[in-house]
């Protein structure tokens, strides 16, 4: 079954035409990466799916249901987003408990305490952090809270916007392991935006390379590992990554 399907998606910010004719099919349970440089439109695609960039034409379907241009509660139960910067994406004056509980209140779900504790333990956060504020947590702990927040409504799809690029490599490893484990345990579908190809190689099954608002290539991660991408631009990205890692 298809989890996310994008057809002829063109996204606009006012006058600016950001993406051109984006087509993607992401299967249920798949982990898919969108890679490219800043300004290539990869994060904008995620934002359009999440409803944060409402000016678009074309089709966005999640589990066969078309997405509207507005806020959509049924949709948010299926699909949630994790943002890049754990220092900027959590409300500084809300405790972890309030951040995690908010979604439950909005959707009128009871059993609040038990659900918060369950999600906290699944992302590896000790109970003692429940009534702390973001500034009392480290970067890695904050990103765990951000992931926990996204999981509160038990969604099937997670949109991940550079979830580890603001973190140290050792903390990045912890978060990547966590995401991999959560995907297995909860049978999640990932759509991840990143410019870090080794991260794609660790976490994803397929990838699409974007440049100037267009998808230039869709490939299997096995091709990436073998160094077998076809498009000249994707090859260039791959060679730069390989050179850096020696």
């Amino acid at each position: 079954m298809t989890a996310i399907s994008l057809k002829n998606l063109d996204i606009f910010y006012g006058e600016a035409h950001i993406t051109h004719d984006v087509n993607l099919e992401i299967a249920d349970g798949e982990s898919f990466a969108l890679v490219g440089e800043s300004g290539s439109g990869k994060s904008t695609v995620l934002k359009a799916i999440a409803g944060l960039a409402p000016e678009w034409t074309g089709e966005i379907n999640v589990f066969g249901k078309p997405r509207s241009h507005g806020i959509d509660r049924a949709f948010s139960r299926q699909c949630q987003m994790v943002f890049q910067d754990p220092y900027g994406s959590l409300h500084p004056r809300k405790t972890v408990d309030a951040t995690l509980g908010e979604a439950l209140t909005i959707h009128g779900i009871g059993d609040r305490s038990a659900r918060i504790e369950e999600v906290m333990s699944s992302v590896g956060l000790d109970r003692k952090f429940r009534f702390r504020f973001p500034h009392q947590l480290s970067g890695g702990q904050r990103q765990r809270v951000a992931i926990a927040r996204a999981l509160m409504l038990k969604p099937k799809v997670l949109l991940l916007d550079e979830p580890t690029s603001a973190l140290d490599v050792s903390v990045q490893a912890e978060i990547l392991n966590l995401l991999k484990r959560l995907r297995q345990e909860q049978n999640l579908t990932f759509l991840m935006v990143t410019h870090n190809l080794p991260v794609v190689s660790f976490l994803c099954d397929r990838l699409a390379v974007m440049r100037q608002g267009r998808i230039v290539e869709v490939a299997d991660v096995a091709d990436l590992k073998r160094g077998d991408l076809k498009d000249p631009y994707s090859r260039e990205l791959m060679h730069i990554s390989a050179a850096h890692a020696n």
Partner: peptide, 20 residues
């Protein structure tokens, strides 16, 4: 050594990254 090991590689085959 822990820092070096925790960096994912382009041809990653490990199912889990070592953590410090």
């Amino acid at each position: 050594r822990g820092l070096i090991a925790s960096i994912p590689r382009l041809d990653e085959t490990r199912t889990e990254l070592p953590v410090l």
